[in-house]
Design a binder for these strands. Structure first.
Lengths: 208, 208
DNA sequence: CCCCGGCCATGACATCTGTCACGGATCTAG
DNA sequence: CTAGATCCGTGACAGATGTCATGGCCGGGG
């Protein structure tokens, strides 16, 4: 980089629970002259803490992390620091993208893309632009929004591990019959036959 | 590398369905003087075809791939070419390790490890040694084997997406009552309450 | 040989789950 | 205010699921 003033070093925080990809991305980014990886985090809470401490220019956040996921991290950081966030995800679905954008995320990149693109996206985002993967963006335009009501999503979430009706009812302080009713509505709306299929479909779409 | 004769270049085939980690690993490995990435594959079938065509020294295989998974690829290659295989996985469970070792895999590395270790493992494996992640190996020694019978595993697999009893019965050419009986045995053995919990537990343990 | 243990398969029965019709609460539009 | 729409909560009913007892089939000992 010959023009340090025109292109100052971009300070990047990296968060991904998968050690191999985290370290690989960090190594590749460090090869770029204008990018400085100042922190590597393995979960969402750590990412928030380090970001608030170090005030990076850009946060590169994996979506799937224990504790807080990438979008939740971005949402918290929006209120406390000025960093711009890029969310990277394995399962890039329109629902997830919508969630990310409404959390103020500046970049959205599926892990199916080449690692070489990451540096380019970081530069664009650091320069104030937004970047959304074109393919996902196209999908998001012509897709169906989640047809489930809030309470139905609660029920689905409470039963996503195969919990029994009685357990869900206890967790949400409802009568078992009410839970069954919600489940019934969910199955009808999603046009599937069992709870498990409803859970899989909703996870696939990024609704839960 | 000053001694090319003592350390000839290791020809590596790389297979991972996640483009970002595949390209990142390829880029890092190419920085090593003694490693040559000769192929990058996105799924198991492609990996088998390319391996048989190019005869690599080492195959670095992701476990989770569409089509054939990493262990299945290793199993096929064992009979056709001399390449040694390293399996890399996100969910490193004792059951998976056992499956991998009985397929003749020479190296086993979870994705929680640092990307820098990959090159070292490739060198050791290429030199004829075996490498198994010490942490997983320790787990594998003191663990419980799958208590389910073959037929019970069939039923579990056939119902892993939330299929209905009737659908499972049709898929396996059984009476619905028989399927319910197997399911009942599964739930008792795994000490869980629903099919979905049984599926999740078994996937977690690497049994299906 | 016969018995035993494991696995697979089946039908009857009890329980759980999904469906339906209903009432109450809240919000919006007219 | 009232009508309509939407969502939440509930109980009664039918059908699917899980449990149990039973029998056939094989392979390994006594």
């Amino acid at each position: 980089m010959t023009e340090e003033t025109a292109r100052p070093v971009i300070r990047v925080l990296l968060a991904d629970d998968e050690g191999m990809i985290r370290s690989a991305l960090a190594a590749l980014l460090r090869l770029e002259g204008d990018i400085d990886v100042i922190a590597e985090c393995a979960d969402g809470l750590q990412a928030v803490a380090e970001a608030e401490r170090l005030q990076p220019d850009v946060c590169l956040l994996d979506l799937e992390m224990p504790g807080l996921d990438g979008v939740e991290v971005a949402e918290r950081l929006r209120r406390t620091i000025a960093a711009r966030c890029v969310v990277v995800t394995r399962h890039a679905r329109p629902g997830v993208l919508r969630r990310a954008l409404s959390a103020g995320v500046a970049g959205f990149l599926p892990k199916s893309r080449d690692a070489g693109e990451v540096a380019a996206v970081i530069r664009r985002v650091a320069a104030g632009a937004r970047y959304v993967d074109p393919e996902i963006a196209a999908d998001a335009l012509s897709d169906e929004r989640c047809p489930l009501t809030d309470r139905e999503l609660d029920v689905l979430r409470a039963g996503r591990r195969g919990e029994t009706t009685a357990q869900i009812a206890r967790a949400l302080s409802l009568a078992p019959g009410t839970v069954r009713n919600h489940v019934s509505a969910i199955l009808a709306k999603l046009a599937v036959d069992t709870r498990q299929q409803a859970v899989l479909l909703s996870q696939d779409r990024g609704w839960i």
